[in-house]
């Protein structure tokens, strides 16, 4: 018996070479296939999470942000046209989710304290134990302790490679402010890490 127009559920896996590429997976996911989206998740969630951890400076919060970004990616798959790499598209979407959340948090805080003091959340030097942790871990911890705006500018510029004007645009702050935050972040990191 032959059934000509038989369509089957596409089957995907994350661990072999003859895999569908991200664009195929994205279009299957757009059609409602969560397994394809799971493969995209397996490929890209680590990067999304890393960005969220560094931007948020808090793992619990980072997990929530990564969740929100990935759910939004699923909901907005229709806006991914395939002209850029999927990873790039997802990365930019994640930056937006993180910055939007930071903005609404600032608004909430502004209602409580009229004069927002970005320095308020600067603690002392983070507790580092150079004897048993590597430099990289030290740097991750130190980044987490930076004041929020300085941390976000530093991560976007020095870790993620965004330009000053892009950061100013996305964070809705003046380019001069970006420069000041970046400078402050580096100064604090150098002091804490005793470079």
């Amino acid at each position: 018996m032959t059934v000509p127009a038989l369509t089957l559920h596409p089957r995907v896996t994350a661990s072999t070479q003859d895999l569908p590429d991200d664009r195929d997976l994205a279009s299957r996911a757009l059609a409602g296939d969560t397994r394809s989206f799971e493969v995209l998740f397996e490929r890209h969630a680590g990067r999304v999470y890393a960005l969220c951890v560094r931007m948020a400076g808090d793992r619990q919060r980072a997990q929530e942000l990564a969740h929100d970004a990935l759910v939004r990616a699923w909901e907005r798959l229709g806006s991914y046209k395939g002209e850029a790499a999927f990873g790039t598209w997802l990365h930019r979407l994640t930056v937006n989710v993180v910055l939007e959340s930071a903005r609404s948090q600032r608004r909430r805080e502004a209602r409580v304290a009229l004069a927002e003091d970005d320095d308020a959340d600067v603690g002392g030097a983070p507790e580092l134990a150079p004897s048993d942790v590597g430099d990289r871990i030290d740097l991750e911890r130190a980044i987490a302790k930076l004041p929020r705006n300085a941390r976000q500018v530093f991560v976007l510029h020095d870790v993620e490679g965004f330009r000053h004007d892009e950061i100013a645009d996305r964070m809705a702050i003046a380019p001069g402010t970006v420069r000041a935050h970046l400078h402050r972040a580096r100064k604090l990191l150098i002091a804490w890490l005793d470079r």
Partner: peptide
């Protein structure tokens, strides 16, 4: 500092359950 930041891994292990 700038070099160390650029050399951070672009990916971190995703928490269980995400």
């Amino acid at each position: 500092t700038v070099a160390a930041a650029a050399a951070l891994p672009s990916s971190l292990p995703v928490p269980d359950g995400l």
